[in-house]
Design a protein around this nucleic acid. Structure first.
Length: 562
RNA sequence: GUCCCCGUAGCUCAACGGAUAGAGCGGUAGCCUCCUAAGCUACAUAUAUGGGUUCAAUUCCCAUCGGGGACACCA
Protein backbone atom coordinates (compact mmCIF):
# COMPACT_ATOMS: atom_id res chain seq x y z
CA UNK A 1 0.00 0.00 0.00
CA UNK A 2 2.89 2.35 0.74
CA UNK A 3 3.99 1.96 -2.86
CA UNK A 4 0.59 3.08 -3.99
CA UNK A 5 0.72 6.15 -1.77
CA UNK A 6 4.16 7.01 -3.05
CA UNK A 7 2.95 6.77 -6.60
CA UNK A 8 0.16 9.22 -5.89
CA UNK A 9 2.51 11.55 -4.07
CA UNK A 10 4.70 11.50 -7.14
CA UNK A 11 1.73 12.66 -9.16
CA UNK A 12 1.18 15.43 -6.66
CA UNK A 13 4.83 16.34 -7.12
CA UNK A 14 4.56 16.57 -10.88
CA UNK A 15 1.38 18.50 -10.49
CA UNK A 16 3.06 21.13 -8.33
CA UNK A 17 6.10 21.41 -10.55
CA UNK A 18 8.58 19.50 -8.41
CA UNK A 19 9.85 16.59 -10.43
CA UNK A 20 13.16 15.55 -9.12
CA UNK A 21 12.61 14.52 -5.57
CA UNK A 22 13.20 10.85 -5.01
CA UNK A 23 13.80 8.71 -1.96
CA UNK A 24 11.23 10.39 0.16
CA UNK A 25 9.68 8.36 2.91
CA UNK A 26 6.15 7.48 3.82
CA UNK A 27 5.69 6.13 7.29
CA UNK A 28 3.65 6.28 10.39
CA UNK A 29 4.29 9.42 12.38
CA UNK A 30 5.10 9.26 16.10
CA UNK A 31 2.12 8.88 18.41
CA UNK A 32 1.85 12.55 19.30
CA UNK A 33 1.06 13.37 15.67
CA UNK A 34 -2.54 12.50 15.17
CA UNK A 35 -2.38 11.38 11.55
CA UNK A 36 -2.25 8.08 9.76
CA UNK A 37 0.82 8.65 7.63
CA UNK A 38 3.48 11.21 7.10
CA UNK A 39 6.13 12.09 4.55
CA UNK A 40 9.24 14.22 4.62
CA UNK A 41 8.61 15.45 1.07
CA UNK A 42 8.22 19.16 1.86
CA UNK A 43 11.60 19.55 3.47
CA UNK A 44 13.29 17.57 0.70
CA UNK A 45 11.65 19.76 -1.94
CA UNK A 46 12.56 22.90 -0.10
CA UNK A 47 16.19 21.79 -0.02
CA UNK A 48 16.33 20.59 -3.59
CA UNK A 49 14.66 23.60 -5.21
CA UNK A 50 15.88 26.08 -2.67
CA UNK A 51 12.44 27.50 -2.03
CA UNK A 52 10.74 28.48 1.19
CA UNK A 53 8.87 25.79 3.02
CA UNK A 54 5.80 27.98 3.02
CA UNK A 55 5.74 28.01 -0.77
CA UNK A 56 6.13 24.26 -0.90
CA UNK A 57 3.30 23.82 1.55
CA UNK A 58 1.07 26.05 -0.53
CA UNK A 59 1.78 24.34 -3.79
CA UNK A 60 1.24 20.89 -2.35
CA UNK A 61 -1.90 21.95 -0.62
CA UNK A 62 -3.27 23.46 -3.82
CA UNK A 63 -2.50 20.39 -5.82
CA UNK A 64 -4.14 18.13 -3.26
CA UNK A 65 -7.19 20.33 -2.91
CA UNK A 66 -7.66 20.54 -6.65
CA UNK A 67 -6.99 16.99 -7.74
CA UNK A 68 -6.45 14.60 -4.87
CA UNK A 69 -8.98 15.67 -2.31
CA UNK A 70 -10.71 12.31 -2.61
CA UNK A 71 -7.54 10.46 -1.59
CA UNK A 72 -5.94 12.68 1.02
CA UNK A 73 -9.01 13.53 2.99
CA UNK A 74 -7.12 15.40 5.65
CA UNK A 75 -3.66 16.94 5.58
CA UNK A 76 -1.46 19.10 7.70
CA UNK A 77 2.09 20.38 7.69
CA UNK A 78 4.42 20.34 10.63
CA UNK A 79 7.90 21.63 11.15
CA UNK A 80 10.57 21.05 10.20
CA UNK A 81 8.86 20.09 6.95
CA UNK A 82 6.59 17.11 7.20
CA UNK A 83 3.32 16.50 5.43
CA UNK A 84 0.91 14.46 7.51
CA UNK A 85 -2.20 13.00 6.02
CA UNK A 86 -5.18 10.75 6.44
CA UNK A 87 -6.28 8.60 3.56
CA UNK A 88 -9.64 7.82 2.18
CA UNK A 89 -10.72 4.61 3.87
CA UNK A 90 -11.39 2.96 0.51
CA UNK A 91 -7.65 2.67 0.23
CA UNK A 92 -7.59 0.34 3.20
CA UNK A 93 -10.70 -1.43 2.11
CA UNK A 94 -9.27 -2.27 -1.30
CA UNK A 95 -6.13 -3.68 0.22
CA UNK A 96 -8.07 -5.85 2.66
CA UNK A 97 -10.25 -7.07 -0.15
CA UNK A 98 -7.14 -8.33 -1.89
CA UNK A 99 -6.21 -10.21 1.27
CA UNK A 100 -9.60 -11.90 1.38
CA UNK A 101 -9.53 -12.99 -2.22
CA UNK A 102 -5.89 -13.85 -2.68
CA UNK A 103 -5.66 -15.64 0.68
CA UNK A 104 -2.49 -17.78 0.88
CA UNK A 105 -1.29 -16.18 -2.34
CA UNK A 106 -1.44 -12.68 -0.89
CA UNK A 107 0.41 -10.56 -1.77
CA UNK A 108 0.67 -11.53 -5.43
CA UNK A 109 3.78 -9.68 -6.50
CA UNK A 110 5.56 -9.87 -9.77
CA UNK A 111 8.29 -7.40 -9.10
CA UNK A 112 11.01 -9.84 -10.07
CA UNK A 113 9.10 -12.06 -12.39
CA UNK A 114 11.89 -12.51 -14.94
CA UNK A 115 14.52 -13.31 -12.39
CA UNK A 116 16.04 -16.73 -12.32
CA UNK A 117 17.90 -16.77 -9.05
CA UNK A 118 20.31 -19.25 -7.59
CA UNK A 119 20.66 -19.02 -3.84
CA UNK A 120 23.72 -20.77 -2.58
CA UNK A 121 23.87 -21.12 1.16
CA UNK A 122 25.31 -23.10 4.05
CA UNK A 123 27.75 -25.01 1.82
CA UNK A 124 29.42 -26.04 5.06
CA UNK A 125 32.31 -28.39 4.58
CA UNK A 126 31.24 -31.97 5.12
CA UNK A 127 33.63 -32.35 8.02
CA UNK A 128 31.13 -32.51 10.84
CA UNK A 129 27.56 -31.89 11.93
CA UNK A 130 25.98 -28.49 11.38
CA UNK A 131 26.29 -26.16 14.33
CA UNK A 132 24.20 -23.23 15.44
CA UNK A 133 26.23 -20.85 13.26
CA UNK A 134 25.37 -22.83 10.15
CA UNK A 135 21.80 -22.72 11.37
CA UNK A 136 21.83 -18.97 11.03
CA UNK A 137 22.91 -19.26 7.42
CA UNK A 138 20.39 -22.02 6.82
CA UNK A 139 17.34 -20.12 7.96
CA UNK A 140 18.53 -16.93 6.31
CA UNK A 141 18.87 -18.61 2.94
CA UNK A 142 15.68 -20.55 3.35
CA UNK A 143 13.50 -17.59 4.25
CA UNK A 144 15.04 -15.25 1.68
CA UNK A 145 14.35 -17.91 -0.93
CA UNK A 146 10.75 -18.11 0.20
CA UNK A 147 10.30 -14.37 -0.01
CA UNK A 148 12.00 -14.21 -3.40
CA UNK A 149 9.58 -16.82 -4.68
CA UNK A 150 6.78 -14.67 -3.34
CA UNK A 151 8.25 -11.76 -5.32
CA UNK A 152 7.90 -13.79 -8.48
CA UNK A 153 11.44 -15.12 -8.87
CA UNK A 154 12.23 -18.57 -10.04
CA UNK A 155 14.37 -19.74 -7.13
CA UNK A 156 16.85 -22.56 -7.06
CA UNK A 157 18.50 -23.48 -3.76
CA UNK A 158 21.88 -25.08 -3.92
CA UNK A 159 24.29 -26.54 -1.38
CA UNK A 160 27.86 -26.77 -2.62
CA UNK A 161 29.86 -29.59 -1.07
CA UNK A 162 33.62 -29.33 -0.81
CA UNK A 163 34.09 -33.06 -0.92
CA UNK A 164 37.76 -33.04 -1.82
CA UNK A 165 40.98 -31.39 -0.80
CA UNK A 166 43.02 -31.16 2.33
CA UNK A 167 40.22 -30.81 4.85
CA UNK A 168 38.71 -34.05 3.62
CA UNK A 169 42.10 -35.75 3.88
CA UNK A 170 42.50 -34.56 7.44
CA UNK A 171 38.99 -35.69 8.25
CA UNK A 172 39.56 -39.11 6.76
CA UNK A 173 42.86 -39.54 8.53
CA UNK A 174 41.24 -38.49 11.80
CA UNK A 175 38.66 -41.20 11.34
CA UNK A 176 41.20 -43.81 10.35
CA UNK A 177 43.35 -42.92 13.34
CA UNK A 178 40.47 -43.73 15.65
CA UNK A 179 39.99 -47.02 13.82
CA UNK A 180 43.65 -47.76 14.45
CA UNK A 181 43.60 -46.77 18.12
CA UNK A 182 40.39 -48.62 18.88
CA UNK A 183 41.46 -51.53 16.74
CA UNK A 184 38.15 -51.50 14.87
CA UNK A 185 39.38 -52.80 11.53
CA UNK A 186 42.49 -54.28 10.12
CA UNK A 187 44.68 -51.46 8.82
CA UNK A 188 47.31 -51.72 6.13
CA UNK A 189 50.83 -50.60 7.05
CA UNK A 190 50.94 -47.87 4.34
CA UNK A 191 47.85 -46.28 5.80
CA UNK A 192 49.67 -45.66 9.08
CA UNK A 193 52.26 -43.46 7.46
CA UNK A 194 49.64 -41.73 5.32
CA UNK A 195 47.76 -40.80 8.49
CA UNK A 196 50.88 -39.55 10.19
CA UNK A 197 51.70 -37.40 7.18
CA UNK A 198 48.24 -35.90 6.89
CA UNK A 199 47.72 -35.30 10.59
CA UNK A 200 50.98 -33.49 11.11
CA UNK A 201 49.33 -30.14 11.87
CA UNK A 202 45.87 -30.79 13.13
CA UNK A 203 43.01 -33.20 13.25
CA UNK A 204 39.28 -33.39 13.86
CA UNK A 205 38.49 -34.05 17.47
CA UNK A 206 34.71 -34.10 17.85
CA UNK A 207 32.75 -36.96 19.35
CA UNK A 208 31.15 -37.62 15.98
CA UNK A 209 34.51 -38.81 14.61
CA UNK A 210 34.21 -41.89 16.82
CA UNK A 211 30.73 -42.67 15.55
CA UNK A 212 31.86 -42.37 11.97
CA UNK A 213 34.85 -44.60 12.69
CA UNK A 214 32.54 -47.33 13.89
CA UNK A 215 30.38 -47.00 10.80
CA UNK A 216 33.36 -47.03 8.47
CA UNK A 217 34.90 -50.03 10.17
CA UNK A 218 31.67 -51.92 9.64
CA UNK A 219 31.83 -51.28 5.91
CA UNK A 220 35.58 -51.57 5.46
CA UNK A 221 36.86 -54.61 7.31
CA UNK A 222 40.30 -53.84 6.00
CA UNK A 223 41.59 -50.30 5.48
CA UNK A 224 43.96 -50.13 2.52
CA UNK A 225 45.59 -47.19 0.85
CA UNK A 226 44.02 -48.26 -2.42
CA UNK A 227 40.59 -47.85 -0.99
CA UNK A 228 41.21 -44.55 0.75
CA UNK A 229 39.31 -42.60 -1.94
CA UNK A 230 36.30 -44.85 -1.45
CA UNK A 231 36.53 -44.32 2.29
CA UNK A 232 36.65 -40.55 1.84
CA UNK A 233 33.54 -40.70 -0.30
CA UNK A 234 31.77 -42.82 2.27
CA UNK A 235 32.69 -40.52 5.14
CA UNK A 236 31.43 -37.48 3.24
CA UNK A 237 28.28 -39.39 2.46
CA UNK A 238 27.72 -40.22 6.12
CA UNK A 239 28.26 -36.64 7.19
CA UNK A 240 26.03 -35.28 4.46
CA UNK A 241 23.31 -37.70 5.50
CA UNK A 242 23.55 -36.29 8.97
CA UNK A 243 23.48 -32.71 7.67
CA UNK A 244 20.51 -33.40 5.42
CA UNK A 245 18.68 -34.94 8.31
CA UNK A 246 19.28 -31.88 10.45
CA UNK A 247 18.07 -29.63 7.64
CA UNK A 248 15.00 -31.75 7.25
CA UNK A 249 14.23 -31.22 10.92
CA UNK A 250 14.26 -27.48 10.22
CA UNK A 251 12.07 -27.92 7.17
CA UNK A 252 14.79 -27.00 4.73
CA UNK A 253 15.25 -28.78 1.46
CA UNK A 254 17.63 -27.91 -1.32
CA UNK A 255 16.97 -28.23 -5.01
CA UNK A 256 20.43 -29.61 -5.40
CA UNK A 257 23.53 -30.69 -3.58
CA UNK A 258 26.50 -30.14 -5.83
CA UNK A 259 29.77 -31.98 -5.23
CA UNK A 260 33.02 -30.25 -5.96
CA UNK A 261 34.34 -33.51 -7.44
CA UNK A 262 31.52 -33.44 -9.99
CA UNK A 263 32.81 -30.12 -11.26
CA UNK A 264 36.21 -31.62 -11.91
CA UNK A 265 34.77 -34.66 -13.60
CA UNK A 266 32.90 -32.39 -15.95
CA UNK A 267 36.17 -31.14 -17.40
CA UNK A 268 35.22 -27.55 -16.76
CA UNK A 269 38.55 -26.98 -15.03
CA UNK A 270 40.46 -27.16 -18.29
CA UNK A 271 37.97 -24.86 -19.94
CA UNK A 272 38.36 -22.29 -17.17
CA UNK A 273 42.11 -22.48 -17.38
CA UNK A 274 41.93 -21.76 -21.10
CA UNK A 275 39.54 -18.95 -20.49
CA UNK A 276 41.81 -17.29 -17.96
CA UNK A 277 44.72 -17.80 -20.31
CA UNK A 278 42.77 -16.12 -23.06
CA UNK A 279 42.31 -13.08 -20.87
CA UNK A 280 46.00 -13.07 -20.05
CA UNK A 281 45.26 -13.57 -16.40
CA UNK A 282 47.43 -16.62 -15.79
CA UNK A 283 51.01 -16.65 -14.71
CA UNK A 284 53.38 -19.42 -13.68
CA UNK A 285 55.50 -18.54 -10.71
CA UNK A 286 57.43 -20.51 -8.09
CA UNK A 287 56.11 -23.76 -9.48
CA UNK A 288 52.48 -22.78 -9.03
CA UNK A 289 49.83 -21.40 -11.30
CA UNK A 290 48.65 -17.90 -10.37
CA UNK A 291 45.73 -15.87 -11.49
CA UNK A 292 46.27 -12.12 -11.67
CA UNK A 293 43.50 -11.44 -9.21
CA UNK A 294 44.67 -7.84 -8.87
CA UNK A 295 43.12 -7.28 -12.26
CA UNK A 296 39.87 -8.63 -10.86
CA UNK A 297 39.74 -6.14 -8.04
CA UNK A 298 41.57 -8.20 -5.46
CA UNK A 299 44.41 -6.80 -3.40
CA UNK A 300 46.92 -9.34 -4.63
CA UNK A 301 47.34 -12.18 -7.07
CA UNK A 302 46.23 -15.66 -6.03
CA UNK A 303 47.33 -19.20 -6.61
CA UNK A 304 44.87 -21.43 -8.40
CA UNK A 305 47.00 -24.55 -8.85
CA UNK A 306 49.44 -25.26 -6.05
CA UNK A 307 52.96 -26.44 -6.74
CA UNK A 308 51.88 -29.95 -5.78
CA UNK A 309 49.36 -29.86 -8.61
CA UNK A 310 46.31 -29.50 -6.35
CA UNK A 311 43.78 -26.81 -7.21
CA UNK A 312 42.93 -24.22 -4.57
CA UNK A 313 39.50 -23.36 -3.26
CA UNK A 314 39.50 -20.21 -5.34
CA UNK A 315 39.98 -22.19 -8.53
CA UNK A 316 37.06 -24.45 -7.64
CA UNK A 317 34.98 -21.40 -6.98
CA UNK A 318 35.76 -19.93 -10.37
CA UNK A 319 34.64 -23.17 -11.94
CA UNK A 320 31.56 -23.32 -9.76
CA UNK A 321 30.46 -19.83 -10.63
CA UNK A 322 31.10 -20.44 -14.28
CA UNK A 323 28.80 -23.41 -13.93
CA UNK A 324 26.17 -21.27 -12.20
CA UNK A 325 26.19 -18.73 -15.00
CA UNK A 326 26.22 -21.42 -17.65
CA UNK A 327 22.95 -22.69 -16.27
CA UNK A 328 21.38 -19.32 -17.13
CA UNK A 329 20.79 -17.93 -13.68
CA UNK A 330 20.74 -14.16 -13.90
CA UNK A 331 20.80 -13.46 -10.20
CA UNK A 332 23.29 -15.19 -7.96
CA UNK A 333 22.93 -14.87 -4.23
CA UNK A 334 25.64 -16.28 -2.00
CA UNK A 335 25.28 -16.33 1.74
CA UNK A 336 28.57 -16.42 3.57
CA UNK A 337 29.89 -16.00 7.08
CA UNK A 338 31.91 -12.82 7.53
CA UNK A 339 35.05 -14.89 7.81
CA UNK A 340 34.86 -14.95 3.99
CA UNK A 341 34.62 -11.23 3.57
CA UNK A 342 38.12 -10.91 2.13
CA UNK A 343 36.93 -13.17 -0.60
CA UNK A 344 34.13 -11.00 -1.91
CA UNK A 345 36.03 -8.81 -4.36
CA UNK A 346 37.85 -11.75 -5.84
CA UNK A 347 34.62 -13.49 -6.65
CA UNK A 348 32.90 -10.35 -7.83
CA UNK A 349 35.66 -9.80 -10.37
CA UNK A 350 35.50 -13.40 -11.44
CA UNK A 351 31.78 -13.35 -12.01
CA UNK A 352 32.05 -10.11 -13.93
CA UNK A 353 34.68 -11.63 -16.17
CA UNK A 354 32.75 -14.81 -16.82
CA UNK A 355 29.47 -13.09 -17.48
CA UNK A 356 31.20 -10.81 -19.96
CA UNK A 357 32.74 -13.80 -21.67
CA UNK A 358 29.44 -15.65 -21.86
CA UNK A 359 27.65 -12.44 -22.81
CA UNK A 360 25.18 -12.75 -20.01
CA UNK A 361 23.75 -10.22 -17.67
CA UNK A 362 24.34 -11.49 -14.16
CA UNK A 363 23.70 -9.86 -10.83
CA UNK A 364 25.74 -11.13 -7.91
CA UNK A 365 24.83 -10.43 -4.32
CA UNK A 366 26.95 -11.70 -1.51
CA UNK A 367 25.28 -11.59 1.85
CA UNK A 368 27.55 -11.74 4.82
CA UNK A 369 26.25 -12.73 8.19
CA UNK A 370 28.15 -12.36 11.44
CA UNK A 371 29.32 -15.53 13.07
CA UNK A 372 27.69 -16.94 16.13
CA UNK A 373 29.71 -17.18 19.32
CA UNK A 374 29.04 -19.61 22.06
CA UNK A 375 28.49 -18.54 25.64
CA UNK A 376 29.41 -21.09 28.21
CA UNK A 377 29.69 -20.16 31.85
CA UNK A 378 29.59 -16.47 30.93
CA UNK A 379 32.57 -16.88 28.66
CA UNK A 380 32.48 -16.21 24.94
CA UNK A 381 34.05 -18.92 22.83
CA UNK A 382 34.16 -19.05 19.07
CA UNK A 383 32.97 -22.30 17.59
CA UNK A 384 35.27 -24.69 15.81
CA UNK A 385 34.24 -27.88 14.11
CA UNK A 386 37.77 -29.17 14.02
CA UNK A 387 38.32 -28.68 17.72
CA UNK A 388 34.99 -30.29 18.42
CA UNK A 389 33.97 -27.05 20.16
CA UNK A 390 30.46 -26.29 18.98
CA UNK A 391 26.83 -26.74 19.78
CA UNK A 392 25.28 -28.84 17.09
CA UNK A 393 22.06 -27.71 15.52
CA UNK A 394 20.60 -31.07 16.37
CA UNK A 395 21.27 -30.47 20.02
CA UNK A 396 19.48 -27.13 19.86
CA UNK A 397 16.59 -28.65 17.94
CA UNK A 398 16.31 -31.38 20.57
CA UNK A 399 16.10 -28.79 23.31
CA UNK A 400 13.86 -26.10 21.88
CA UNK A 401 12.52 -27.33 18.54
CA UNK A 402 12.60 -25.91 15.05
CA UNK A 403 10.18 -23.00 15.47
CA UNK A 404 12.00 -21.45 18.40
CA UNK A 405 15.40 -22.00 16.81
CA UNK A 406 14.33 -20.46 13.53
CA UNK A 407 12.74 -17.46 15.17
CA UNK A 408 15.71 -16.92 17.46
CA UNK A 409 18.08 -16.86 14.51
CA UNK A 410 15.83 -14.82 12.26
CA UNK A 411 14.83 -11.97 14.54
CA UNK A 412 18.32 -10.55 14.44
CA UNK A 413 19.78 -8.67 11.52
CA UNK A 414 22.59 -10.66 9.82
CA UNK A 415 24.94 -7.87 10.81
CA UNK A 416 24.67 -8.37 14.54
CA UNK A 417 27.15 -10.52 16.35
CA UNK A 418 25.12 -13.20 17.95
CA UNK A 419 25.90 -14.73 21.28
CA UNK A 420 24.27 -18.05 21.81
CA UNK A 421 23.77 -19.49 25.27
CA UNK A 422 22.06 -22.84 25.18
CA UNK A 423 21.14 -22.75 28.86
CA UNK A 424 19.49 -19.38 28.39
CA UNK A 425 17.77 -20.54 25.21
CA UNK A 426 16.29 -23.47 27.11
CA UNK A 427 15.20 -21.27 29.97
CA UNK A 428 13.55 -18.74 27.71
CA UNK A 429 12.16 -21.14 25.20
CA UNK A 430 8.72 -21.19 26.79
CA UNK A 431 8.64 -17.43 26.83
CA UNK A 432 9.93 -17.13 23.32
CA UNK A 433 8.28 -14.45 21.18
CA UNK A 434 7.49 -17.09 18.60
CA UNK A 435 4.73 -18.39 20.89
CA UNK A 436 3.38 -14.90 21.16
CA UNK A 437 2.78 -14.74 17.43
CA UNK A 438 1.58 -18.31 17.18
CA UNK A 439 -0.85 -17.63 19.97
CA UNK A 440 -2.28 -14.68 18.04
CA UNK A 441 -2.92 -17.09 15.20
CA UNK A 442 -4.65 -19.62 17.46
CA UNK A 443 -6.82 -16.88 18.83
CA UNK A 444 -7.94 -16.10 15.28
CA UNK A 445 -8.67 -19.76 14.71
CA UNK A 446 -10.61 -19.95 17.97
CA UNK A 447 -12.84 -17.05 17.07
CA UNK A 448 -13.45 -18.36 13.57
CA UNK A 449 -14.28 -21.78 14.89
CA UNK A 450 -16.76 -20.39 17.38
CA UNK A 451 -18.28 -18.24 14.66
CA UNK A 452 -18.70 -21.14 12.28
CA UNK A 453 -20.46 -23.08 15.02
CA UNK A 454 -22.95 -20.28 15.36
CA UNK A 455 -23.17 -19.47 11.67
CA UNK A 456 -22.08 -22.42 9.53
CA UNK A 457 -22.99 -20.75 6.23
CA UNK A 458 -21.00 -17.61 6.78
CA UNK A 459 -19.22 -16.23 3.73
CA UNK A 460 -17.02 -13.19 3.22
CA UNK A 461 -18.90 -12.02 0.12
CA UNK A 462 -22.05 -11.77 2.18
CA UNK A 463 -20.61 -9.07 4.43
CA UNK A 464 -18.04 -7.37 2.24
CA UNK A 465 -20.23 -4.32 1.62
CA UNK A 466 -20.95 -3.86 5.30
CA UNK A 467 -17.26 -4.21 5.84
CA UNK A 468 -16.58 -1.23 3.58
CA UNK A 469 -18.80 0.96 5.75
CA UNK A 470 -17.28 -0.49 8.88
CA UNK A 471 -13.77 0.45 7.72
CA UNK A 472 -14.80 3.98 6.83
CA UNK A 473 -16.41 4.51 10.20
CA UNK A 474 -13.60 3.17 12.36
CA UNK A 475 -12.21 5.51 14.94
CA UNK A 476 -8.60 6.11 14.00
CA UNK A 477 -7.42 5.56 17.55
CA UNK A 478 -9.14 2.19 17.85
CA UNK A 479 -7.21 -1.04 17.85
CA UNK A 480 -9.43 -2.15 15.00
CA UNK A 481 -8.11 0.59 12.79
CA UNK A 482 -4.53 0.04 13.93
CA UNK A 483 -4.95 -3.57 12.97
CA UNK A 484 -6.26 -2.56 9.55
CA UNK A 485 -3.31 -0.27 9.01
CA UNK A 486 -0.80 -2.89 10.06
CA UNK A 487 -2.32 -5.51 7.79
CA UNK A 488 -2.09 -3.11 4.88
CA UNK A 489 1.67 -2.60 5.10
CA UNK A 490 2.54 -6.29 5.03
CA UNK A 491 3.75 -6.34 1.44
CA UNK A 492 6.12 -3.45 2.09
CA UNK A 493 7.73 -5.43 4.84
CA UNK A 494 8.46 -8.24 2.41
CA UNK A 495 10.10 -5.82 0.03
CA UNK A 496 12.20 -4.42 2.80
CA UNK A 497 13.40 -7.92 3.63
CA UNK A 498 14.61 -8.44 0.07
CA UNK A 499 16.06 -4.97 -0.35
CA UNK A 500 18.21 -5.52 2.71
CA UNK A 501 18.52 -9.27 2.41
CA UNK A 502 17.28 -9.58 5.92
CA UNK A 503 14.16 -11.42 7.05
CA UNK A 504 14.34 -9.92 10.51
CA UNK A 505 12.00 -7.16 9.35
CA UNK A 506 9.35 -9.80 8.84
CA UNK A 507 9.90 -11.20 12.34
CA UNK A 508 9.59 -7.78 13.89
CA UNK A 509 6.50 -7.09 11.84
CA UNK A 510 5.00 -10.35 13.03
CA UNK A 511 5.58 -9.39 16.63
CA UNK A 512 4.01 -5.97 16.00
CA UNK A 513 1.02 -7.45 14.27
CA UNK A 514 0.53 -10.00 17.04
CA UNK A 515 0.77 -7.29 19.65
CA UNK A 516 -1.95 -5.26 17.99
CA UNK A 517 -4.06 -8.33 17.47
CA UNK A 518 -3.82 -9.30 21.15
CA UNK A 519 -4.83 -5.80 22.17
CA UNK A 520 -7.72 -5.92 19.74
CA UNK A 521 -8.70 -9.28 21.18
CA UNK A 522 -8.62 -8.04 24.76
CA UNK A 523 -10.56 -4.86 24.09
CA UNK A 524 -12.97 -5.73 21.32
CA UNK A 525 -15.48 -8.55 21.34
CA UNK A 526 -16.15 -10.26 18.06
CA UNK A 527 -18.69 -12.65 19.51
CA UNK A 528 -20.74 -11.85 22.57
CA UNK A 529 -23.84 -13.54 23.90
CA UNK A 530 -23.83 -15.79 20.83
CA UNK A 531 -24.01 -12.84 18.49
CA UNK A 532 -21.37 -12.30 15.88
CA UNK A 533 -20.11 -8.93 14.76
CA UNK A 534 -19.41 -9.94 11.17
CA UNK A 535 -17.32 -6.95 10.23
CA UNK A 536 -14.99 -7.61 13.10
CA UNK A 537 -15.01 -11.24 12.13
CA UNK A 538 -13.78 -10.27 8.68
CA UNK A 539 -10.97 -8.38 10.31
CA UNK A 540 -10.06 -11.57 12.12
CA UNK A 541 -10.11 -13.47 8.85
CA UNK A 542 -7.65 -10.98 7.34
CA UNK A 543 -5.42 -11.11 10.42
CA UNK A 544 -5.34 -14.86 10.28
CA UNK A 545 -4.34 -14.85 6.64
CA UNK A 546 -1.47 -12.43 7.20
CA UNK A 547 -0.26 -14.19 10.36
CA UNK A 548 -0.33 -17.50 8.60
CA UNK A 549 1.33 -16.21 5.44
CA UNK A 550 4.14 -14.58 7.42
CA UNK A 551 4.72 -17.67 9.50
CA UNK A 552 4.74 -19.83 6.44
CA UNK A 553 7.39 -17.64 4.80
CA UNK A 554 9.46 -18.08 7.93
CA UNK A 555 8.66 -21.77 7.78
CA UNK A 556 7.26 -21.73 11.29
CA UNK A 557 4.13 -23.60 12.31
CA UNK A 558 0.86 -21.71 12.52
CA UNK A 559 -0.92 -23.94 15.02
CA UNK A 560 -4.68 -24.22 15.29
CA UNK A 561 -4.50 -24.98 18.99
CA UNK A 562 -1.97 -24.35 21.72
C1' G B 1 50.49 -3.40 10.90
C1' U B 2 46.20 -3.20 7.07
C1' C B 3 40.97 -4.22 6.15
C1' C B 4 35.59 -5.56 7.51
C1' C B 5 31.66 -5.81 11.27
C1' C B 6 29.72 -4.52 16.12
C1' G B 7 29.09 -1.36 20.86
C1' U B 8 21.53 0.93 22.61
C1' A B 9 17.64 -0.95 29.37
C1' G B 10 20.29 -5.88 34.37
C1' C B 11 20.17 -9.74 29.74
C1' U B 12 19.01 -10.87 24.16
C1' C B 13 17.86 -7.80 20.26
C1' A B 14 14.86 -3.42 17.04
C1' A B 15 14.76 1.50 15.00
C1' C B 16 15.54 3.11 4.66
C1' G B 17 19.29 10.41 8.33
C1' G B 18 13.33 12.02 10.85
C1' A B 19 9.37 14.15 15.23
C1' U B 20 8.71 11.66 22.53
C1' A B 21 14.77 5.52 20.73
C1' G B 22 11.03 0.33 20.62
C1' A B 23 10.14 -5.21 21.88
C1' G B 24 10.97 -9.72 24.58
C1' C B 25 13.27 -11.89 29.01
C1' G B 26 14.05 -10.59 34.10
C1' G B 27 11.79 -7.01 38.39
C1' U B 28 7.32 -4.60 40.86
C1' A B 29 1.85 -3.94 41.09
C1' G B 30 -2.96 -5.19 39.01
C1' C B 31 -6.74 -8.00 35.42
C1' C B 32 -10.28 -14.45 33.97
C1' U B 33 -19.16 -15.36 35.78
C1' C B 34 -17.39 -13.07 28.73
C1' C B 35 -14.16 -15.62 21.37
C1' U B 36 -7.83 -20.04 24.88
C1' A B 37 -4.30 -15.72 30.74
C1' A B 38 1.32 -18.95 25.99
C1' G B 39 -2.83 -12.91 26.90
C1' C B 40 -3.82 -7.64 28.68
C1' U B 41 -2.75 -3.04 31.87
C1' A B 42 0.65 0.13 34.78
C1' C B 43 5.68 1.34 36.68
C1' A B 44 11.36 1.45 36.57
C1' U B 45 16.03 1.15 33.62
C1' A B 46 19.65 2.64 27.69
C1' U B 47 22.35 5.23 22.49
C1' A B 48 30.80 3.47 24.87
C1' U B 49 33.74 8.50 24.84
C1' G B 50 35.23 13.16 22.31
C1' G B 51 34.80 16.08 17.98
C1' G B 52 32.46 17.23 13.09
C1' U B 53 28.56 17.33 8.78
C1' U B 54 22.97 18.38 8.80
C1' C B 55 16.83 21.90 9.53
C1' A B 56 17.35 16.87 11.97
C1' A B 57 22.53 11.89 14.06
C1' U B 58 21.57 5.60 17.52
C1' U B 59 22.17 5.99 12.07
C1' C B 60 26.96 9.61 8.04
C1' C B 61 32.55 11.33 8.73
C1' C B 62 37.14 11.57 12.01
C1' A B 63 39.67 10.14 16.59
C1' U B 64 39.83 7.18 21.19
C1' C B 65 38.41 2.90 24.05
C1' G B 66 36.20 -2.11 24.09
C1' G B 67 34.50 -6.94 21.46
C1' G B 68 34.33 -10.29 16.98
C1' G B 69 36.34 -11.59 12.18
C1' A B 70 39.77 -11.47 7.81
C1' C B 71 44.57 -10.66 5.84
C1' A B 72 47.90 -18.59 3.00
C1' C B 73 50.61 -22.60 -2.46
C1' C B 74 43.79 -23.60 4.36
C1' A B 75 38.89 -24.62 3.13
Amino acid sequence: MIEKIKKILNEVLNDSGFFQVKDFEVKEPPPNINFEFSTNLPILISKKYNVLLEDVYNKIENSINNNYKNIFIEINFTSPGFLNFNLDRNFYYEELKKIFFEKEEYPCLDKYKNKKVLVEFISANPTGPLHIGHGRCAVLGDVLSNILKKMGCEVYKEYYINDRGRQIDILTASVVEVIILENLSEVEEEVFSWCRKVLVDSKYKGEYIKEISVEISKIFKKITLNEIEKIKTKIVELIMDNIKNTLKRMGIDFDSYLNETELYKSGLNQKIKNLLQEFGLIEEKEGALWVKAKNLGDEKDRVIIKSDGEPTYFFSDIIYHYYKIMRNYNWLINIWGTDHHGYVERLRGTVELISKKLEKEVKLDIILYQLVSLITKNQRVSMSTREGRFISLDEVLDEVGSDVTRFFLLTKSPNTHLDFDLELAKEHSLKNPVYYTQYAHTRCVGILKEASNLEPNFSIEQYIDDFRDYISNLDKTSYEFKLVKTLCVYSNVLEKCIENFSPHYLCNYLIDLSKIFHKFYETTRVISSNKIDFCRLLLVVASKIILKNSLSLLNIQAPEKM
